[in-house]
């Protein structure tokens, strides 16, 4: 986690670009959908990586706890995440080189 710095504000999961990772801050979903999303392990504090978009741009597939889950934009708009900084200036963590 040292390699990442949380951005200050939580943003919708749908704003996370392909290839980037976020940490779930909160869910603004209701009812059954909320339960289902939680049951898949998307509880606050969980890492979510944006994998790819459908050819038409929606839905989007995310990597969650070792599984791949596709969600529509309407849902991901309602999931708040902290995007992890892993931009080009800070290269991805290399095992054995941490300080």
């Amino acid at each position: 986690m040292d390699h990442f710095t949380k951005t200050q504000k939580a943003i919708p999961l749908s704003d996370i670009p392909v290839g980037a990772t976020g940490v779930i801050a909160s869910l603004n979903l209701n009812g059954l959908l909320r339960r289902r999303v939680l049951d898949l392990g998307m509880v606050p504090g969980t890492f979510v990586e944006c994998l790819r978009q459908s050819p038409s741009g929606d839905p989007t597939a995310y990597r969650v706890r070792g599984t791949t889950i596709a969600l529509r934009r309407e849902s991901t708009d309602q999931i708040a995440v902290y995007q992890l900084k892993m931009g080009p200036e800070t290269s991805p963590p290399v095992p054995g080189k941490e300080g």
């Binding site: 959908l33 289902r36 898949l40 599984t67 791949t68 889950i69 596709a70 969600l71 849902s75």
Partner: peptide, 11 residues
Amino acid sequence: EVSALILELPP
């Protein structure tokens, strides 16, 4: 109204 979709893409 359209409901949500949750679709797992298995390996």
